[in-house]
Design a binder for these strands. Structure first.
Lengths: 334, 334
DNA sequence: CTGTTAGCGCTTTCAC
DNA sequence: GTGAAAGCGCTAACAG
């Protein structure tokens, strides 16, 4: 069941069959139709491996994510794959599980699969591993790294803007005591959010006590733990900004458990706008960053920096917007 | 940067290098070490495509799911991949998006990748498409299809048991008017749940008015719509069983919106026990089915039905259990 | 527009 | 325990 059988049955050479399937050169329409018919008849599918080996192109992009079970990623993966499929590319999704050791395995798998480019959507990354890729001149696109170079593009998210919006929103409600539950410090995107938060408060001359910054892990449990700490403070904040929605969901959960009313007693802001945020009780106010746009940009960056063509990477910035829902409100007694 | 370069640098033949990497035959330990060292030095990774082509084995399994954005699937995918990696298998995950047209594309992609087996975790499926696989004697494992045959295994979920448990739980709370928000009728797993529900009520001589069965779509929005219908009924149910957790989350959301207290006025039961169910307000009572177990069984079924070995498929049944949380309670005024 | 031919990088007998 | 050599199925010049 290979190309030669099709060729024989259609009375042409295997090269012609190949041309029909790759569309690489003009083939007589009648011949092409005959080939297609025969192929369908005997149920022929071209062998990806032979094709990749022979052509030297895998037509596959690697997509590195931290954790497919984190609701931030499925939409991203879906959009990327969708986009890739449009251009006849396969996507090899690998999941590092937030683990640098697994990251190395992932990179190896991608290289072994001769991917034509890699989108690294995790923030945890070692230069040594990047080198494995760049030594082979494999185009890379990062999320939130900021560095652009030969074969290396970047997607930046405009955290500052989103966080400014959120802070202003909170200020309008009269909040002065605003806390932050940040993500893992080692995570670049989490650090960027924290820095933006601190800068935004400073710019507005709002004091930020040290104990108002708590460390979560971008998971529900981290949000729960941090929220408990915040609620145990002698002087509680009246509003809390969370580094992502999962964290906010954890915080919300603890608030319910401890009988704290949201937003009456404390306002809560998330980040990302994952799908479930809108059906929480109360629906979460959050800063939306479009996963679809990230995915599309990532794909485009790779597709545009194909090995042969443009070498120089580009930097895209993705905007953020405030989605005001019901987890924020006027400060109590204000 | 290929096997020959390694061979030359290590002063052996490419066959020996191949043996070192596949572990297919005994190689002198000293030679093996030398080969490994050289390989590391020049950064050699075997080419998957050449390997697959030459050996005729892709060492890849296909995993077909409906929608990676549905919280049911990420855990399943993760477990399957993890398991596969342990046995040195790659997983090619394809997402049908609940669409039969895309299903056909997915199957084609899997065949083109010469996968050694396919786990079909979606319920929507056409016999014609299955044939594409089985004609090539590719082992298949289904979820909830019940049919077992040559190269075809199945994983059944014991819906009856879980639903019996849930109904008894509700009865103990004094509920008599129990409604169902079912999933898409075309979805086998949804139909199985509905049938189990109807059978369980009948067995206990509980009347089930027609209007107490509503149709959702296994998404949040479907749950919302169905819940609205149910709340508009002249005689409302006192308890609602949902075909999955997402549906229950939608129902819960509408309840909040319309000021209905859960579980005081209406008890709510979900199905699946996705991660977020436990942090909803109130935490969802649900029927747990272990995605890890499904994934493990699926992998094992494929691995055990490898092309050469056992031809006959097997049927595994996976148990379910009730997770009683706070969305169920005594019937109002009871 | 189409056939011939030479590999792509690796695995796998078959000898030794 | 190791090397030589023949492909795996396909693509990509190169002629014609």
């Amino acid at each position: 069941m290979n190309i030669r059988q099709v060729a024989k049955a259609a009375g042409v050479s295997s090269a012609t069959v190949s041309r029909v399937f790759t569309g690489s050169a003009t083939v007589d329409p009648a011949t092409a139709r005959r080939v297609h018919k025969v192929a369908k008849q005997i149920g022929y599918f071209p062998n990806t491996y032979a094709r990749a080996l022979s052509s030297g192109k895998s037509n596959t992009y690697g997509l590195i994510i931290s954790d497919i079970a984190n609701p931030f990623f499925p939409d991203l993966v879906k959009s990327f794959e969708h986009q890739a499929l449009e251009y006849d590319y396969e996507t090899l999704v690998v999941d590092t599980n937030y683990d640098l050791k697994r990251m190395e395995q992932c990179i190896r798998r991608l290289v072994e699969h001769k991917v034509d480019g890699v989108a690294i959507m995790t923030s945890e990354m070692e230069p040594r591993l990047v080198q494995i890729l760049s030594r082979r001149e494999i185009p890379i696109v990062f999320l939130d790294t900021g560095k652009v170079g030969p074969h290396i593009s970047n997607i930046s998210i405009d955290y500052e803007h989103g966080i400014d919006l959120a802070i202003d929103h909170l200020l309008q409600f009269g909040h002065k005591r605003i806390a932050l539950i940040q993500g893992p410090p080692a995570l670049r995107s989490a650090a960027a959010r924290r820095n933006a938060f601190i800068a935004a408060l400073k710019r507005r001359n709002i004091t930020l006590p040290h104990e108002y910054i708590r460390i979560g892990n971008h998971g529900v449990d981290g949000g729960q733990a941090a929220m408990n700490e915040l609620l145990d403070l002698r002087i509680r904040p009246t509003a809390i900004m969370c580094s992502n929605d999962l964290t906010a969901i954890g915080a919300l959960n603890v608030a319910h458990l401890r009988g704290i009313q949201i937003p009456k007693e404390i306002s809560l802001v998330g980040f990302d706008d994952i799908q479930l945020s809108s059906v929480m009780q109360p629906p979460l106010t959050t800063i939306r960053v479009s996963r679809i746009e990230i995915a599309t940009r990532a794909f485009t960056a790779l597709y545009g920096t194909a090995k042969g063509s443009k070498v120089r990477g580009v930097n895209h910035v993705i905007s953020t917007e405030l989605v005001a829902r019901a987890s924020t409100g006027p400060v109590a007694g204000g």
